[in-house]
Structure formats: structure tokens, C-alpha cells
Simulated scan of single mutants.
Amino acid sequence: MTTSSVDTDDIGYVHGYSAHETRRLGDQADTLAALLHSGTAYPAGSKVLEAGCGVGAQTVHLVTASPLAHFVAVDVSADSLERARARVTAHAPDAHLTWLQANLFELPFPDAEFDHVFVCFVLEHLPAPRQALRALRRVLKPGGTLTVIEGDHGSAFFHPDSAYAHAAIDCQVQLQSVAGGNALIGRELHPLVTGAGYEDVMVRPHTVYADRSRPALVNGFTRNTFVAMIESVREEALATGLTTPSDWDRGITDLHRTATDDGTFHYTFFKAVALNPGPVEE
């Protein structure tokens, strides 16, 4: 199966590749590991592809949960792979793991190479997520499993409520759309996965709720993951005329209020698990 019709030059990562973003991704993965990785473990000797491993934030938790599985972690960015290698070496030096720079739409593997495929926070950045899922089906054995995790920025609600805070979030959503992605993709997982030809698709919501009784989530998710992510697009949001400096600053201030003693924050991730019924039709 060929996927060369996808213009991969248009694939953009709206959050950037800074050291700050690397730390944010690590904070997110570590804070949410129990929530997102619960139930995800692979048998000894199985071959698992992590597609779009990025800086290895999720890879650490994958290999720790399945120490006897054999992982291949793929990403299009050489710089991200180097950061991933360093992170996993520091946290799980004995992992059975191979690193490979490759384009998800043009994976250099034979058909039916893997027993399982894991994809986390990747589809949201792709211009053709259904086509990407079909490309992954090609390298997945018949009967093999696909696991996909995505967020949905439309699921964010909080107290105190603020129209300015919602507008700041919407700036990030719009910028991601311009970059070819979809920050609301979580709600679309079931039709995307079934449309790519997978069967027995099950999608479950995984909700994060933070208030002062859960300080680890307030710091690790509300402040250091979600608000930090929105803050990172300030210059681009202003440069593209999506907001004004005063409105933006008001929105970010109001988002930070949700992490105070009187604030609350809610967000939903969606996790899909599915089976590959057989070879992908040309």
C-alpha cells in the first residue's frame, strides 16, 4: 500500500520542539501514566510499534509496563529521537527497544511485522489521520491490536469559568488546525478507527479532574501540562491576529485561577483499542 499522496511537508507540531516542550511532555506523561496506560501491557516476546514516539515521554511507561516485549519506537524527527533515547536510557536502561527515524505514512517495514501498535497524541497533528491508521494496519498482523490515545480541547471546563480563558484555548485549537491538525480529535476516534478498517473498536473516556484535594494533578496537569501548552502559543496567536495582548493575558490569568485553592479543572482523553481483521486492501 502506498501513502505517498500525503504531503508530509505540511505536517506541523504546533507546540514546537523546545526544551520547555520536552519538559512539558514529560510532566504530562508522568502525571497521567496511571490514567492513560492502565490496561496497556504486552506479552513477553511480542513485537510492538510505537508510532510517533516523540521525545519518549510515553515510551518510558510502555517499556516499564511490558519489560519482556520488544519495542520499535519511530518518529519523523531525529532531534526528538535523540531526546527520547536519552530519556529512556535514564529511566529504563534495560528496555528491549529499537529506535528508527521514519515517516509514519511511509513505514519501512514489511507487511504484518508487528503484534501490536501504540499511538499516543499523534493523530491530532496529522493532516490525514485515517490514512495514517491504514498505514499502521499494513504493518500490523491480522488479529493484532491497535491502541490510540488522544485528547479533546473541547472537553476542558473549569471553575471559575471565563470566556477569556476559553478564547485563549480556542486560539490553540485554531492554530493547530492551520498547521494541519485537529485538537478536537478525541471525540472522532471511533469513526476514524472504524473507517480505517479496524474491528472490535472500543473507545473509552479517561477523565482528569483536579482540585486542591489533588495537588499532584493541579501541578502536573492543570499548571504544567494544559496551561503551559496554551501559554506556548502566545506569540503566534498574537502574530496571526487571533487575539489581543490584553485579552490573551486575561485568558491566561483566568486559566491559572483554576489551579488555585478555589479552582477546579476537568479534561477528557479518549482511548481506543481495536483489532486488525486482516491485510489492507490496495
Rank of each mutant, 00 (worst) to 15 (best):
R212Q: 08
R234D: 05
I185H: 05
V208N: 04
A216Q: 07
S213Q: 06
N219D: 06
A216S: 09
V233N: 01
M229W: 02
T240I: 13
E236I: 15
E236W: 11
V233E: 01
V233A: 00
I230Q: 00
V227W: 03
T222E: 04
M202V: 15
A210G: 03
A210W: 00
V201R: 09
P215H: 07
V201A: 13
E231W: 00
G195D: 04
S213M: 06
E235M: 08
V208A: 11
V193M: 11
A239W: 08
M229Y: 02
D200Q: 07
F226V: 12
E199K: 11
S213N: 03
H190N: 11
T207I: 15
L192M: 04
P205T: 09
V218T: 02
A237G: 05
S232H: 06
V193R: 08
F221N: 03
V218H: 00
L238W: 07
L238M: 05
S213A: 07
R212P: 07
G220Y: 02
V203M: 11
L217S: 00
T194L: 15
T240R: 12
A228K: 06
V201E: 04
R212D: 02
S232A: 13
R223H: 01
H190S: 11
I230F: 00
P191G: 08
T244N: 02
T207S: 04
P191R: 13
S213K: 09
R234Q: 10
Y209H: 13
G241N: 05
V227R: 05
V233P: 01
G241V: 13
P205H: 11
L238T: 07
G186A: 13
H190A: 15
H206I: 02
L192P: 00
T225E: 05
D200E: 04
P191N: 10
R234G: 12
G241S: 10
L238D: 02
T240M: 12
G220C: 03
V201S: 11
P205S: 01
A239D: 06
L189Y: 10
N224W: 05
A228E: 05
M229Q: 07
A237M: 06
A216M: 08
R234Y: 13
A239Q: 05
G241Y: 06
V201D: 06
P191C: 12
T194G: 03
V233Q: 01
R223G: 01
R204L: 15
G195F: 14
N219M: 13
M229D: 03
N219T: 11
Y198E: 02
R223S: 00
E199M: 14
A196Q: 07
D200G: 09
E231N: 01
E188L: 15
T194F: 08
F221D: 01
N219A: 14
P191V: 15
A196K: 09
T240K: 12
T225V: 10
E231K: 04
E199W: 12
A216V: 04
M202C: 14
H190E: 07
R204V: 15
F226E: 01
T207L: 15
T240S: 11
R223L: 03
R204W: 10
L189T: 10
A196N: 08
G241H: 05
N219K: 08
L242H: 06
D200M: 14
H206A: 02
S213E: 03
N224H: 03
S232G: 14
V208I: 14
V203Q: 06
D211P: 09
I185K: 14
T240N: 07
M202N: 09
E236H: 10
S232L: 10
V201Q: 06
L189V: 13
D211N: 10
E231G: 02
A239C: 12
